[in-house]
Simulated scan of single mutants.
Amino acid sequence: MKTFHCNRCEQLVFYENVRCERCESLLGFLPELREISAFEDAGDGRWRSLHPQANGALFRQCHNYAVENICNWMIPADSPETLCQACRLTRTIPNLSEPDNRLYWYRLEVAKRRLLYTLAELGLDAQSLDADPERGLAFEFLADGGDGEQVMTGHDNGLITLNIAEADDAHREKVRTAMGEPYRTLLGHFRHETGHYFFSQLIENEPRRLEPFRKLFGDERADYGEALAAYYRNGAPADWQASYISAYATMHPWEDWAETWAHYLLIVDVLDTSTTYGLALLPDDPSEPTLTDRTPVEDASFGNLMKRWFPLTYALNSLNRSLGMPDGYPFTLAAPVVDKLRFVHRVIAAAGDKRDKHGERESIGA
């Protein structure tokens, strides 16, 4: 995530902001530019962008911005759409007559928009399932039924379902502890489930990618139901950390892929943010980890990303411990996990038509 500024007064603002704290200008995200813009009122529900790249173009607020206070994306003034690109991906919203559901909806949409930003930066834009029934993407946010029926978070042919209870911090922490997970976030759920979606888009019907996938992750044709039952009956192998990013990744090759995919998105998002902010590690002791490389994530080779990731997470965990908080990055990347992350990097590089720092496309099967 890059840094953003108010175009009227240059105040630093965040991706989620809707108003500048200094000059009170309306703020909104322009997905075409992937920039936050300040706006001036042009009348009739139209807003003139003050961002220099927008050239004074007129926009309207997404309906979920202007009316529901859930979104902060803008729509070109001449567009027939009432919802922005992000909100059109949400097929079902929570029942707003229930207490707290508006807050949960807001948190879900914030996490979803951050995911979409990262995917767009990687060249992985997705059409809505309504616009493209064959290859599109959609989300539904559902709650458990009063009769004890539970909503399972998951993916099915482009439709990602999330249980809105995951937007309740107390509930999510309770589940995290009960499951013995070191890390569980709302954004992580979005990253994981889009891993399943992109498996179907980028690997499932691509023989040149499917065979290398099976060498690293296993045969995805193994019965999923049996694997799921075995995992919840027996748990993960005792030595799972030697080959997997998480215990849940041991359950089935599909889950190993989705967990690894989610972790790769985490890595590139954090590195992108630290690079944009100019974060550097310059210790007095030369034996301590240093970090001065500011290669843009989209131009970096996988080796470059990993070289920068380890010192950054060392500093992150040290800062968290000084705050009295758990490690921000409670993971260990064994060599087989790094190989899987490298495969994800290459698949995304090929799909997003990205090239490494040498200007050469990386080989999927290498």
Rank of each mutant, 00 (worst) to 15 (best):
G188N: 06
S200N: 13
H51D: 14
D130N: 02
G225N: 08
I160G: 12
K112D: 05
L312G: 09
P336D: 02
I36P: 07
E193W: 01
E255A: 04
D219Q: 11
T290N: 00
R191G: 09
A258S: 15
F139S: 04
T276G: 13
Y104Q: 13
A229S: 11
N320S: 06
L89G: 02
A238W: 00
P133T: 09
I203V: 15
P286L: 03
G28Y: 04
Q11C: 01
L116Q: 14
H192N: 09
F302L: 00
A280W: 03
E109D: 12
T332E: 15
P207D: 01
T260G: 00
D78G: 08
V67P: 00
V337W: 05
G145I: 11
E32G: 14
L12A: 03
A249C: 10
A242R: 10
E211M: 09
I75Q: 05
L279D: 06
W240T: 08
G328N: 03
E255W: 04
L96M: 14
R8K: 13
T82N: 00
R294D: 13
E140R: 10
I164M: 04
E24N: 00
T153C: 11
R209N: 05
N55P: 08
Q11D: 06
M306Q: 06
N101Y: 14
G303H: 12
L279R: 00
D285N: 04
G145T: 08
S246C: 14
E193M: 09
L162A: 02
A280R: 02
C20P: 07
L265Y: 07
F139A: 08
R114E: 10
K340Y: 13
V344K: 09
Y197W: 15
S363Q: 13
F331G: 03
A351G: 11
E24T: 06
T161P: 14
A57P: 07
V18M: 00
L265Q: 13
L265T: 09
K357V: 05
M251K: 07
R135G: 04
H189V: 01
D78H: 07
D125E: 00
Y183W: 11
E81K: 04
R308K: 08
N163T: 01
A170E: 02
L186D: 02
V13R: 12
T250Y: 08
